[in-house]
Design a protein around this nucleic acid. Sequence first.
DNA 1: GTCTATACATAGATAGAC
DNA 2: GTCTATCTATGTATAGAC
Lengths: 244, 244
Amino acid sequence: MKKGRTEISAAALTYQEFRNIVEVSMEKICRAVFHENRDSIKIKKEEVAVKNLINIFNTTLELSNTLGFQAMSLRDLSRESGLSMGALYSYFTGKDELAKIIQEQGRRIIGDILKEQVEKGESPRERLQIAIRAHLFLNEVMQKWFYFSFMEARNLSRAEQKLAIESELVTESMFIDIIECGIARGSFRVSNTVLTASTIKAVLQDWYLKRWKYLRRKVSVEEYAEFIISLIESFVMPKEKRAK
Amino acid sequence: MKKGRTEISAAALTYQEFRNIVEVSMEKICRAVFHENRDSIKIKKEEVAVKNLINIFNTTLELSNTLGFQAMSLRDLSRESGLSMGALYSYFTGKDELAKIIQEQGRRIIGDILKEQVEKGESPRERLQIAIRAHLFLNEVMQKWFYFSFMEARNLSRAEQKLAIESELVTESMFIDIIECGIARGSFRVSNTVLTASTIKAVLQDWYLKRWKYLRRKVSVEEYAEFIISLIESFVMPKEKRAK
DNA sequence: GTCTATACATAGATAGAC
DNA sequence: GTCTATCTATGTATAGAC
């Protein structure tokens, strides 16, 4: 087993297993995006549409991650994706909508996977560990999306911004629930539950916001996950409970 | 004294004292910016130039914080600042340079103040507390600048990006030094110094990146500072050393 | 030192041929 | 379903009057 890993359950997921889950989700979601946006998407053949949508999403994320979505012109997107300007406009009604669709698509994948994973845990401690790992592994696999989502949120419409905020708060609530459950069972001891959850989110987020730093220092996502778990556990658990 | 505050030194600074320090620095720095950019600034009279520079900087930060620097047109800046397009171009050679000057200006204020404050601490524990408070108080007072600096970094030139990265790493090194000193003196115990320092930066940064969240929850900067101090101390200090 | 008027480039978006 | 050609708006930047 991985060195330094706090083993509390055989069910604890690894990064490799995680990659596959997301890979599969990706195409499924793109297909769902196609069906739900049939009115703005002028293409009728599902296979063609899904193939091009995946291309458009990936290329957009790629280009946006260097200079930002605003700085990416649709001509850039056209050139890099291999689709003409006219063709692009068969897949969305305008640049704003493209951003919106990408945001929605990502939120859905993340919500689905995170919830599904955390429910596997039995004790609060186990759920906390799973939540941290799952979140970080998601950050890693979908790094470009998370960065896009964070950096471009302010250019969304009011309604879309509200959804993005809600999504952040839902994830935070997940941590709040886990902590409260742990307190109720006597395994955690926390001075301020909300701030604690908020802090956990902050250190997780750093993984994709400061990617250059962790890459440069050759810190792996697994190593980072175990470090964050030890940090948080030292804060929420009395010392005697932490021992194996 | 403030409830919940871990008092270890009468010299520990308060937020109010801090506001004044920055207020004074602000104009001094704008004056320095004027002198160092004499070639690109076409205005000769110092008083006029400094007054307008402060106006331009503040208005730019204001506008950029809502929709981003890219989205802010120079026509917007002209309208909001009250200066004409032509007048604006007497103060910088182009939009890119404006961003560059703002970045430099902020980095200088922060570097100066942070170093000065931390040197006041005697023990590692005291320096750690001061560094966290000073950093957060700076984040609060210069919130718009920090947000601008983070969000617009990717649109800078290569050289400027390097400077921004260096600046982040210098601040982190300050925490690394404090922690190492604490370990050497036997007051701290840390599994991974670099990751610990990196984590501290991450939670501090959250204060200005997620301002909406803390505002909404009515968390004050002082409250947040004390919480972060307790979190970090629980991680780096053995329990028996933390008691007063 | 500041203004107005204008040049020029590039962006998003669409029409119509294939 | 995809392309090329083109329209229109808006952005940065400057010239020259005041």
